[in-house]
Amino acid sequence: MPRVREVDVFRLVLPYGRRPESILVKLTDHGGMAGWGEVVHPDPKVWGTLEETLAQILIGVDWETPHDLPELGTAADMACWDLATRMTGVPLAHALGGTRTSLMATVRLPAVRSLQSAVDGVNRFVGAGYAHVTVEIHPGWDVEPLRAIRAAYPALAITVDARRAYTEIGQLESLAGYDLSGIERPCDDLDLSAELQSRLSIPVVVEARSLAELDEAVAARAGRALMLRPSLFGSLAAVKTAHDRARRAGWDITCADGRGTGLARAATVAVAALPGCTLPSDVTEPPRNAQIVEPPVGASGGVVAIPLTQPGLGHTVDEERVRRMARDSFALR
């Protein structure tokens, strides 16, 4: 039975891209075992909320599973799951109900400056072993890059991510002629998304940011697949519920989430082991200079192995590196 003795929280600014922020939570029980969690791009209020609430909720409190605890937020909830499954010797993927030993990864190609840059980017991904690429599009950058990529790679599996940028579906409908595997996040309007799905044989992939949004999307027939981002649901129990509801509706599922330090990605990999997650998932590794876990989270030949030989998240955290990278921290005893 976990009984938390100490809570450590770290704020990191990550050394890539626009230098995103990540918050890590470490929970240590009375026997010295630790569980870790992460939230990437946290709401500004998260830091203060954790400082004000975690001690009262967790320290010295007996609990069997994270289901016994009130809402903690993404990072602390993940840390509870990691701690509980490490104590019972069970991989997190199995504790959630996962059945896979590996999964196919997709890799994202952001909008770039030229068609040649797009083709070159895909060439790098294919050379690294990826069999599936997700191409980010927007009005004015859709038909031409797809035509160039498809001409260079006739057999490559391609999904497009419209990032809710479209208000008309005619252009998106025409993209299906490029032998796509799916269209992700076409628009914000569920009725428009449903109309697009009714015209296509490939799945429209809807990103739901809550269980209520998922129920609305299923009722509207806004798609045939769910983009499941664990960080949006606040707890892994809610993520599992979203998976189960989408699966009962007959929807396929792809998993994705912020890259962070590797911890958030590790949790996403565990979720992607669930039986309904049949589509390639965006679990490519964060940059090596940001990772604080061993072994690093990432794909080999476009395939991600589910860490089933170790309990919990299946990765060891380099705490010395965490403390060197931390811009701020606090401890609760």
Rank of each mutant, 00 (worst) to 15 (best):
R3Q: 15
V4G: 07
V4T: 08
R5N: 13
V7E: 02
V9Y: 09
L12I: 14
L14G: 02
G17Q: 14
R18T: 15
E21H: 11
L24Q: 07
K26A: 13
L27A: 08
D29E: 15
G32F: 10
G32R: 12
M33N: 12
M33C: 14
W36I: 03
W36E: 04
E38I: 11
V40Y: 06
P42Q: 08
V46A: 14
E52V: 09
A55G: 14
Q56D: 14
I59S: 04
V61W: 09
H67I: 10
L72I: 06
G73F: 03
T74M: 08
D77C: 08
M78W: 02
M87I: 10
G89F: 02
P91A: 10
P91H: 10
H94G: 05
A95F: 04
L96N: 01
G97K: 01
G97L: 03
T99E: 12
R100Y: 07
T101M: 11
R108T: 14
P110N: 03
S114A: 04
D120Y: 07
R124I: 08
R124L: 11
V126T: 10
G129E: 11
A131C: 14
E136V: 13
I137R: 04
H138C: 12
P139K: 13
G140N: 13
L146H: 02
R150T: 02
P154D: 10
L156Y: 01
A165D: 13
E168D: 14
I169L: 12
D179M: 08
L180H: 14
D191K: 09
L192P: 01
L192S: 07
S193L: 11
S193Y: 06
A194T: 00
A194D: 00
Q197H: 09
L200S: 05
I202C: 09
I202N: 08
V204E: 04
V205N: 01
V205E: 00
E207Q: 09
A208T: 02
S210D: 09
A212G: 14
D215P: 02
A219M: 08
A219Y: 06
A222F: 05
R224G: 11
M227R: 11
M227L: 15
L232E: 15
G234E: 12
A237E: 10
V239G: 08
K240L: 14
R247G: 14
R248V: 15
R259Q: 13
L263Q: 06
L274H: 10
L279K: 02
V283Y: 00
T284H: 06
P287Y: 04
Q291P: 03
Q291W: 00
Q291R: 08
Q291L: 02
E294D: 11
A299S: 09
S300W: 07
L308G: 05
L308K: 02
T309F: 03
T309H: 12
P311I: 06
P311Q: 08
G312F: 00
G312D: 01
G314T: 05
G314I: 04
E319T: 11
E320F: 06
V322Q: 03
V322E: 02
R333H: 10
R333I: 08
